[in-house]
């Protein structure tokens, strides 16, 4: 088996998205199909925002979610996921992580950040909230793994939330992550 891909919850379940964010009915198929075609085992991570802020949540930037309580919530999820990753690491499995770029929780290289956002929400299209960096959950997972003597596995993020989303480039990035 090539390895195990720990993927963002919404890759398999767009129902978990913030209202207005679901791009497909259920499964976001392009990357799932690629992972399966290459023989990678899929392990879905829980959605950090779904249970904490719920299905009626507003779109949010990282600063709005970055509270001690949400960090504790993310760390609890991270303990569960890291425990599973540890099982595979001890078996010698290759691991990759597929997060969600632009997400305040699941961003790997791009999160959403704007310290001025707050109060009554106004979200003009083409806002400038995208910023380089990891989401809160990814940070907590990295910290949990570090405490266990592991590092974050090679990772990428689905880019379909970004204005310059390029499906071909996204799949190429996955292919590179998976080793060609």
């Amino acid at each position: 088996m090539p390895g195990v891909a720990f993927v963002a919850h919404c890759l398999l379940n767009q129902n978990a998205k913030v209202d207005g964010g679901a791009r497909t009915a259920g499964i976001y198929s392009p990357l799932v199909e690629d992972l399966r075609a290459r023989g990678w085992r899929i392990e879905q991570m829980p959605c950090p925002e779904l249970a904490f802020t719920g299905l009626h949540r507003f779109w949010a930037v990282k600063e709005q979610l970055d509270t001690p309580a949400f960090r504790r919530h993310c760390r609890r999820i991270a303990r569960a996921v890291a425990s599973a990753m540890e099982v595979h690491a001890e078996r010698g499995d290759d691991l990759v992580l597929v997060g969600l770029e632009g997400s305040p929780s699941m961003g790997v290289c791009v999160t959403s950040s704007d310290p001025e956002i707050g109060g009554r929400p106004t979200w003009p299209d083409g806002g400038t909230e995208l910023a380089a960096g990891k989401g809160i959950y990814i940070e907590e997972l990295e910290a949990e793994l570090r405490e266990r003597g592991f590092s974050l596995p090679p990772a990428m993020g689905v880019s379909h939330q970004l204005p310059d989303h390029d499906p071909a480039a996204e799949r190429a990035t996955l292919a590179e992550l998976l080793g060609g």
């Binding site: 919850h9 379940n13 259920g26 499964i27 392990e43 879905q44 829980p46 425990s83 099982v87």
Partner: peptide, 26 residues
């Protein structure tokens, strides 16, 4: 249909329990 994946049967019980807790909450 969307999918919530259940813990694999090859995970130890303590690992599966942590994951099942998250499945139930979601």
């Amino acid at each position: 249909w969307g999918v919530v994946q259940l813990p694999a049967s090859d995970y130890p019980d303590d690992v599966a329990a942590l994951l099942l807790e998250e499945v139930a909450e979601q």
